[in-house]
Write a protein that binds this DNA or RNA. Structure first.
Ligand SMILES: Nc1ccn([C@H]2C[C@H](O)[C@@H](COP(=O)(O)OP(=O)(O)OP(=O)(O)O)O2)c(=O)n1
Ligand SMILES: [Mg+2]
Length: 1124
DNA sequence: ATCCTCCCCTAC
DNA sequence: TAAGGTAGGGGAGGAT
């Protein structure tokens, strides 16, 4: 129990074990006097852990993980839910998410974990095999033998044993477990745990959906995610299945493409950067045409994307039907069905819709297996296949490769989007003719509530239990279905099937039985039997994830669900889902046809064909996406207050060319939200922010694989009282025109004529950014530029405001609640300070027009946060700021900093494959230094060479070479990205000279100085260039641990002190200084007084000395003392 | 409790 | 070759 992490973990652990009243408010012994929130908190925390606690208490297994709080990161084998269950059953605690408050003692990951936060850095990271092996051994094995990263040899590392106390260990020789740890789960299991129980081994194998055979030893192979034995129908994410099989661990990009199809003389360049690789790829004009290299790409892509069409059609149908319903209710026709009366719902759906329509042009193929897809290649997706093809096992959404394996005769037809629209229009006309209550499900699918029609036709009110009446009602419902089928067949020459049931669920179930080209009414008496025999995955809303969870609790068929209580289901699946499935399993579905809540978001994203050669290309593309978004916002007549940018980046261990042609392949995804002070739909405003977010991540443009922008927090546009919208009496199914939804408003045109936002702005090349010059510059301007800009933005963000200003200045990070500021004016400084880690400077926009502006040191205040404040608050901040040195955050900011992850070298939200550790470099480097900590301390000269921190070149090449390939790539990538970020995150990292000239070089330069100042160089701590807070904290840990008994060596204290002073004077990162001092303080204060009284006192004295020296240095710089 | 954010999941 | 979009439901966990 020797650091803050451990302390936190212990608190969590206690709560998890549910034997304490502890909560964050610290009221553990006073349960009776407080009121309100604390009690809520306590109950909630307890409730959240209830499920685990229950499992734990019902488990008769040895409680070997008592005291452990684990978090599982990334894909693992066995998978997350198995590990979760096993850990809990064996007495451990489990955390779904990691954050700064609730801390895990251990992280389970197959490889380096992704979060590059301080917290993770402090965590112990072990392979899943640690859990499995410990269970097999019946006791807790040392986690250090399962480290995800092996330490450099002989270095003393700080290890934590199971009881949570810190001990010093010397890692075992590499060979002990290293090799096992690098191998797959199964080989580990086999070699390491001969006595592993067959039951567990089987359970694990089953759960991971893989045969329990050892995979071949492949020390570099990324572990595969769980595999399904059969591809689910209509799986929208085939990559998790097919991709990983196909691209698998193959290191060099599989040269699947026949050479001769390439005009290139040679294959892909070896050891190329991703940009170079893209350049090679795009040298083929056909590829160029279908990727982002084509300026028409966005338009062209959307015109060919079936999924885009499906989504667009759906939203168009929704609004059309809504309009229709509104007119209908206005004419007073809406007859409300009595509550509790019998319902008759029809689910109408074309049989193999795309395929059926496309077959109209190829009637000779109707009885052959046919599919609709763009191409014949292995990665082409089947949108729809006919029933003959389905007999072979071919399914919608399947990739061609597999489909051909299943059915070598499969004929492929092209899409006929206009044909689908036409058929759909006829379809909906027929549906509307029925006079029932309608809800569109998709272009080829609709729900009709015909209850009212049935009642009026049969003279019933749907209430009595008279069998005869019911029989007549059912017969009439069938008649309606029959006539609909006939009518649609007549109009479209395509078959629809109709399911009839007493609710939406039953109608859907009936539809399944009706297909193809039939109809079926699920009668109340048959409901339980028929639904009971379905697989749970056949229920709406249940697919892989949920059915997997259900399988874990022994549920395969719907009737199995009935054996579980509501409570049990809710605890397994969550309250809503649990309740819903409990009802579904009994044929109950209370949802009504036609109820459609208003839209909550508008977005545009493309995750195919993204192959950039340079950053400006990527940014221009983002702008184009934002234009598209603007169109859609206008089309919906809304503006939004929050923007979310979605980025897919190639996983660093994924091949440069994925299995699917121009596909995204295995990716990590990163989302970041920013809020606008005022809602907007202006593409420049949005684009500016989106680009800024993109830059913040600092990804290599060649690795980008998908980009998207989404607006939320929508507000209707205050439209002119004169509504120009002519209300069409007839179906407003006016021709579905080109896929990019055409805007209805003339404004759109005007906006579209505005030049690209990357157009030149007055160059300020060479102008130094004052932010980095001096952290505290007294303001000379009367009005803060941000306020002036705010005014300007209110008036007109488009025309009068310089491009690079509009929007940005008034951003607030999504994690900042403005009300916090409003309520806590006195606390403002510390709030502001707590907002960002030092690295956030990259993301802090500066004001271009601020010639004599007051500016903030990035280490002292966050411009973005500042801009989010209301004017009066800004004034107060300015006043306060002018008076007093800002207060940096305490170690471990209590505020969860959700935006910060984006400013660190990126934390993927979801990973295609393995977990990653973005601390890889620092951690490994620290280890590589090895040797004696004291010695390296003594050699330190602050402010010495290498002001940039390490570069790839000065990384120990031997150390790099010794790393597994995938980790090495990460280390290098991380490194590269850091440097990139330091260069304003703009320069395309063409390391070996550009093969392709950059068409946008000008705008690159111009944009380069828009807002991101290079940070001040960091002073390395130690000759090896260690300089990050995290690295130094690591050193402090080790230093303190080694000397906690006797106190620190005077020479070491002096070295550290000198370093801090150096940081104050030269690096000028006071936040960093404060962090380090706080860290040390925490280390010292946590040491129990009784255990090492002498050492603790000596440390305290040394700390005081350090503080004094630092304060002295700060005073010398004319600043007010830090609040320590 | 109830709200919010940031995801994951699902459907077509 | 190939066009892997998009919106809503809801779970986890934090704030109030
Ligand atoms: N993964 C998928 C699933 C569907 N679709 C498109 C093509 C389908 O024709 C249409 C309708 O989807 P359905 O689920 O209704 O499937 P079908 O109509 O093709 O077949 P059926 O309804 O007979 O099962 O949506 C698609 O492009 N990709
Ligand atoms: Mg269909």
């Amino acid at each position: 129990m020797s650091n803050a992490l451990e302390k936190n973990s212990s608190a969590v652990r206690k709560r998890i074990e549910k034997h304490t009243f502890t909560d964050e408010t610290g009221e553990e012994y006073d349960g009776s006097t407080f009121n309100g929130f604390p009690e809520y908190f306590r109950r909630k925390k307890i409730k959240l852990q209830n499920l685990d606690a229950e499992i734990r208490s019902r488990s008769d297994k040895p409680q070997i993980f008592k005291g452990i709080v684990a978090h599982v990161s990334g894909y693992t084998q066995p998978p997350l839910h198995i590990l979760h269950k096993e850990i809990v059953q064996h007495g451990g605690g489990f955390l779904q998410y990691l954050d700064s408050k609730t801390m895990a003692t251990h992280i389970i990951a197959s490889s380096l974990p992704p979060k590059k936060t301080v917290d993770w850095g402090r965590c112990r990271i072990a392979k899943p095999a640690w859990i499995v092996d410990s269970i097999a051994a019946g006791k807790l094995l040392s986690w250090t033998d399962y480290r995800v990263i092996d330490e450099g040899p002989r270095q003393k590392v700080l290890a934590f044993d199971a009881s949570g106390s810190m001990t010093q260990t010397t890692p075992k020789p590499r060979e002990t477990y290293k090799e096992h740890a690098e191998n797959s789960f199964y080989s580990m299991q086999l070699k390491n745990c001969p006595e592993m129980s067959a039951a567990l081994s089987q359970a694990v194998a089953k759960a991971s959906r893989q045969p329990a055979t050892p995979s071949k030893l492949q020390s570099l192979a990324p572990e595969n995610p769980p595999l399904e034995p059969t591809a689910p129908v209509g799986d929208p994410t085939p990559d998790s299945i097919a991709e990983n099989i196909e691209s698998g661990p193959a290191q060099p990009p599989a040269p699947e493409l026949p050479e001769e199809t390439k005009p290139k003389l040679s294959g892909p360049p070896q050891n190329a950067t991703s940009e170079e690789h893209n350049a090679w790829l795009l040298s083929d004009p056909r590829i160029q045409k279908s990727s982002t290299a084509n300026p028409e790409f966005l338009k062209q892509y959307y015109s060919e994307s079936r999924l885009h069409h499906l989504s667009t059609w759906k939203s168009e149908l929704k609004s059309k039907l809504q309009k229709l319903a509104a007119e209908k209710s206005q004419t007073g026709k809406a007859g409300k069905r009595p509550v509790g009366s019998r319902r008759y719902i029809l689910h109408v759906d074309f049989d193999s819709f795309f395929c059926a329509v496309s077959l109209k042009k190829h009637p000779e193929l109707v009885d052959k297996p046919v599919a609709v897809a763009h191409g014949q290649g292995s990665g082409s997706e089947i949108a729809s296949c006919n029933y003959p093809a389905r007999e072979f096992g071919v399914r919608n959404g399947m990739w061609m490769k597999r489909a051909h394996e299943l059915c070598s005769d499969l004929k492929v037809l092209p899409y006929d989007f206009p044909g689908y629209e036409a058929a759909s229009q006829l379809f909906y006309e027929a549906i509307i003719e029925t006079g029932g209550l309608i809800q569109s499900v998709s272009i080829d699918e609709a729900l009709i509530d015909v209850s009212a029609l049935v009642y009026s036709a049969t003279g019933s009110n749907g209430q009595g239990a008279d069998e005869d009446t019911i029989g007549r009602e059912q017969a009439h419902a069938d008649e309606i279905a029959t006539s609909i089928r006939a009518r649609i067949k007549e109009k479209t020459e395509c078959n629809v099937s109709v399911g009839v049931g007493a609710n939406i669920l039953q109608a859907k179930v009936a539809l399944r039985k009706a297909k193809p080209a039939g109809q079926y009414q699920l009668k109340p008496a048959d409901v339980l039997d028929m639904i009971g025999e379905l697989q749970v995955e056949q229920l709406p809303g249940v697919a892989r994830s949920i059915s997997g969870k259900l399988e874990d609790v022994g549920v395969k068929l719907v009737k199995d669900l009935r054996a579980l209580s509501r409570e049990r289901l809710s605890s397994v699946l969550g309250p809503k889902t649990g309740e819903k499935l409990w009802e579904y399993s009994r044929g109950i579905d209370k949802a009504e046809v036609g109820e459609q809540p208003p839209r909550k978001s508008v977005s545009a994203e493309i995750n195919w064909g993204i192959r950039f050669l340079s950053q400006p290309e990527a940014e221009e593309f983002v702008y184009n996406l934002c234009k598209e978004l603007e169109r859609r916002l206008l089309n919906e007549q809304v503006k939004g207050r929050q923007l979310t940018v979605k980025i897919m980046r190639r996983s660093l261990d994924a091949p440069l060319d994925p299995a699917k042609h121009l596909g995204h392949g295995k990716c990590d995804t990163f989302n970041k939200s920013v809020s606008f002070g005022v809602s907007t739909n202006n593409y420049e405003t949005i684009g500016k922010e989106a680009v800024s977010v993109l830059r913040t991540f600092g990804f290599s443009p060649g690795d980008l694989r998908g980009l998207g922008v989404q607006m939320t927090k929508l507000e209707p546009i205050k439209t002119n009282p004169s509504a120009p919208e002519g209300s069409q009496r007839k179906l407003p199914f006016s021709a579905f025109k080109g896929p990019p939804p055409s805007s209805r408003r003339p404004q759109t045109e005007a906006i579209e004529e505005v030049e690209s936002p990357t157009k030149p702005t007055p160059s300020r090349q060479g102008e130094r950014d004052p932010i980095t010059e001096e952290p505290f510059t007294p303001s000379k301007s009367k009005v803060h530029p941000a306020m002036a800009l705010a005014k300007a933005a209110e008036e007109d963000t488009k025309a009068t405001t310089p491009l690079n200003v509009s929007g940005t200045q008034f951003l607030l990070p999504s994690s900042v609640d403005p009300s916090v500021f409003a309520e806590l004016p006195k606390d403002i400084r510390s709030r502001l300070m707590a907002q960002r880690p030092a690295s956030s400077r990259q993301a802090s926009p500066i004001t271009k027009s601020s010639t004599t502006a007051m500016v903030f040191s990035s280490s002292q205040i966050d411009t973005e946060v500042f801009n989010a404040l209301p004017d009066d608050m800004k004034a107060e901040v300015l006043a306060t700021y002018g008076r007093k040195q800002a207060q940096p955050p305490a170690y471990h900011s209590p505020r969860k900093d959700k935006t910060s992850h984006a400013f660190k070298p990126a934390t993927p939200i979801k990973q295609g494959g393995r977990a990653r550790n973005l601390f890889g470099k620092s951690e490994l480097k620290k280890d590589a230094q090895a040797g004696l900590i004291q010695t390296s301390f003594m050699d330190i000269q602050a402010g010495s060479e290498d002001p940039q921190g390490g570069t790839i070149e000065d990384m120990d090449s031997e150390f790099l070479a010794g790393l597994p390939e995938s980790i090495r790539k990460e280390v290098m990538e991380d490194h590269r990205r850091q440097r990139l970020a330091q260069k304003s995150g703009l320069e395309a990292p063409m390391l070996h000279g550009q093969k392709v000239s950059d068409p946008d070089a000008d705008s690159l330069v111009e944009e380069a100085q828009i807002e991101f100042p290079p940070p001040r160089p960091q002073i390395p701590f130690g000759k090896s260039g260690v300089s990050s807070v995290q690295q130094i904290k690591d050193m402090l840990d080790a230093w303190h641990a080694e000397t906690q008994a006797d106190g620190p060596h005077d020479g070491d204290v002096e070295v550290f002190q000198k370093y801090l002073v150096g940081v104050v004077h030269e690096e000028r990162d006071l936040k960093k200084v404060l962090k380090l001092i706080k860290w040390l303080e925490v280390l010292i204060e946590q040491e129990k007084t009784e255990s090492q009284p002498k050492g603790k006192e000596a440390w305290q004295r040394s700390l005081a000395q350090i503080k004094k020296a630092v304060q002295g240095a700060i005073r010398k710089r004319g600043l007010l003392p830090l609040k320590l």
